[in-house]
Every structure is written in C-alpha cells, then in structure tokens.
C-alpha cells in the first residue's frame, strides 16, 4: 500500500487544521472514549436541537492522527442527523474499517469524507484508532 493513500493531503488537513476540536459550552450530551492500547483519549460533546437532531458535535483529547482525523470527519458528518441516523452511520463506519462493507459508492455517499479511512481495513492494528470517536458517539446516543 502506498504511504500517502491514507495519510493524504485531505486527511492531513483534518489533523493539522481540525474544524471541530474544541470544548463545547452548551452541550446536551458528553461522553469519554479511550483506546487503552494506544493511549488515545477523547472527550466528545454533542448538542441536540429542539427538533431532536444533532446541531453541533465537537471533541477534545489527544491521540494518533488516525483517531483525531476520524473524530473531525465524524463531527462534520453528524450535523443535522437524528440520533438514530447517527447510530446507523457509526455502525456503517465500523463495517467499513473492519472490511465488512466494501461498497465504495455507498460508503462515499453515506460517510462522505470519512470514506477516506477505507484503507484502515487493511491496517488491523489501526482499526481501534479509527473507530474511537464513532464508538464513543454510538455509546453516548444509545445510553
């Protein structure tokens, strides 16, 4: 696999200039996620609007580029989604990085930029990193 296929410009942009890495003051939901094997730590915040949809999603924490870029892409994707839709997208993302869902068109259509992380399915050691934000969000919304 080419080095830059995962760590490409678009991916690196989320690492070096994240849009959603900040503390949210008026969150309605908050949840911590950790990845013990890497030491990645994520604090995820979500504000649900009156219509029940996600108005804003943001995160803080530290970890590898894969976990942080993944969190940034996810935060962008989730704006405007209902909790049920968000949970479904988290499941789809998991299927993508574990290699269970390989339909590139479907993934790009539903996961948008996060479909960039498709290559993680060839990197078993990094699946947990990529999944961290999505697992955390899914846990939070199911509680």
């Amino acid at each position: 696999m080419d080095v830059t296929s995962l760590y490409n410009e678009q991916f690196m942009d989320h690492v070096t200039h994240p849009d959603y890495k900040y503390a949210m003051e008026d969150a309605t939901h908050e949840h911590d996620g950790i990845n013990p094997s890497c030491g990645d730590e994520l604090h995820l915040s979500v504000r649900l609007g009156d219509d029940g949809r996600i108005e804003e999603c943001a995160y803080t924490g530290h970890g590898c580029a894969v976990s942080m870029a993944s969190a940034d892409m996810m935060s962008d994707l989730m704006v405007g989604k209902t909790p049920a839709e968000a949970i479904e997208l988290c499941a789809l993302f998991k299927d993508m990085v574990t290699g269970a869902e390989k339909d590139a068109d479907k993934l790009e259509e539903q996961l948008d930029e996060a479909a960039l992380l498709m290559d993680v399915s060839h990197m078993p050691a990094r699946v947990k990193c990529a999944e961290l934000a999505w697992r955390t969000l899914s846990e939070m919304l199911q509680e």
């Binding site: 080095v3 995962l6 760590y7 890497c38 970890g63 590898c64 580029a65 894969v66 990197m123 050691a125 990094r126 990193c129």
Partner: peptide, 8 residues
C-alpha cells in the same frame, strides 16, 4: 503520535 510513525 508513535502509532502514526509505526504505521507509516
């Protein structure tokens, strides 16, 4: 992060 270093 060391995991990115090792992966690359």
């Amino acid at each position: 992060h060391p995991h990115d270093v090792a992966s690359i």
